[in-house]
Amino acid sequence: MRLARVALAAAVVAVTWAADLAYACPSCASPLEENRQAFVDTTVFLTIVPLMMIGGFIWWLRRKIREMDGAPEIHP
C-alpha cells in the first residue's frame, strides 16, 4: 500500500520532470541560451533587490526602536 503510494509520487515527479525537459513551450523561447539565462538572472535580481532593501530597512528599524525603548512611551 505504502509502496504503491511512493511509486505514484515518484511517477508524478518523473512526469513533471519529463515535461520540463520536453520544453513544452507554446511559442518557443529565444534560441540564445545567454538570452534565456539573462532573463532568469535579471528576474532573480529584480526580485531580490526590493526585498533586500525593505527587509534591511525593517531590520535596522527594529534594532533602532529597541535601542530607543527607554524613551517615554505610554501604554496603560
Binding site: 520540463d20 511559442s27 529565444s30 532573463f39 532568469v40
Partner: peptide
C-alpha cells in the same frame, strides 16, 4: 514580487521560469 512572469507564459519565456 515572485509572481509577475505568469503574465508571460505564452510570450516565449524560459520554461524553467514558467
Amino acid at each position: 514580487f515572485f509572481v509577475w512572469a505568469h503574465h508571460q507564459f505564452v510570450a516565449g519565456i524560459d520554461p524553467r521560469m514558467a
